[in-house]
Design a protein around this nucleic acid. Sequence first.
DNA 1: TTCAGAACTGCAACGTGTTTCTATTATGAC
DNA 2: GTCATAATAGAAACACGTTGCAGTTCTGAA
Lengths: 203, 203
Amino acid sequence: MTTTNSLTYEDLGSAAQRDRRRRILDATIALASKGGFDAVQMRAVAEQADVALGTLYRYFPSKIHLLVSALARQFEDTQTMVGRKPVPGDTPAERVIYVLRRATRGMQGDANLTEALTRAFMFADASVATEIHVVGMQLTTMLTRSIKGDAYVEGEQPSDEDVAISRVISDVWLSALVTWVTGRATAEEVAEHIETAVNLLLR
Amino acid sequence: MTTTNSLTYEDLGSAAQRDRRRRILDATIALASKGGFDAVQMRAVAEQADVALGTLYRYFPSKIHLLVSALARQFEDTQTMVGRKPVPGDTPAERVIYVLRRATRGMQGDANLTEALTRAFMFADASVATEIHVVGMQLTTMLTRSIKGDAYVEGEQPSDEDVAISRVISDVWLSALVTWVTGRATAEEVAEHIETAVNLLLR
DNA sequence: TTCAGAACTGCAACGTGTTTCTATTATGAC
DNA sequence: GTCATAATAGAAACACGTTGCAGTTCTGAA
């Protein structure tokens, strides 16, 4: 492992290090939440996390790595919070729409944070592939789980078609988020567009 | 109109100004084609276009505006080149796949340029809404035209469903482009994913 | 307990997008 | 042709992501 990835929770040996990592991500989220992408300035993150700038760069090799890692942690948190309950809804489409609606509402509740995380995700290049992949898997899992509903079994591989559909839905969701974040669509338009897409795909 | 938009061709009165604008966009494309997003440096563009840096910023208020405007011009050019011929294919899905395959291949033929334009498009914020909207319309027109095939009539409004489907396909195409541009998927994977999505949507 | 190596701090410096400012040149009304 | 105004050139300066480095502190093996 010599590529320049972000240091994950598991990479870190000591409690002090894990705490540093947590403080850095906390500061990142806080700054993003207050002022969006532009407000997440590396010097500011370092200061707020009580860490030297060089250390920040040792943990996260770029601003984009930092923000995508923050996104992954956010996802993880919400997953573990609601991951146990079965998804309500009688059809795959209903369940997927339910889940996306909830997720979208959550993100729209903090526009600045969403703007920061979304733009970082879309701007990420190949060097962030590892971190991106984590988020992609989280999304796919969330969606295939919703599609299957009660039939979902922990650990079982979803079908190719379900994965394909999930990826298309992810694409639509991300694009919708981007258009919302950039002020080119309202929250209602986003919700409507997503529902339309889901209904086209799951029929 | 006091918001800070890029100056469009129509905005410019004198031939000298239109020529400056053309030179700027030419330089942008040339630099992007040679070295991608990072190589499009504002000083370099100004120098290559034989224009002062301040003038460049008067025409395009940011690097993102500049690149998205370049994208719009590229689109326009290809549209006018192939816009007359009817799209081959017997079904909507076949026609859409044909068009996207051609477009994708075209973009993959100049990976650096595509990287520059795509990343600018995805990174654009609200201030670029006008320029983005132009590109979005171009895409929608291209796709609804393909869906309708021979039944397409110049000037006639496409149906709501066709527009909705086109937007979903646009989303998928853009996401696919992003994953390719950022080195997270190969050209074949992109082509496959797009075809899957189109076949799911147009059936 | 000691000590080598890793991790961290603090700070300076560089590159590039962006802003600002003054001097110069082009344009259009009269 | 003259003049007011806008547009442009040229260059300096600022902002922030990123890098590099000297000195200090922490950590874990012996």
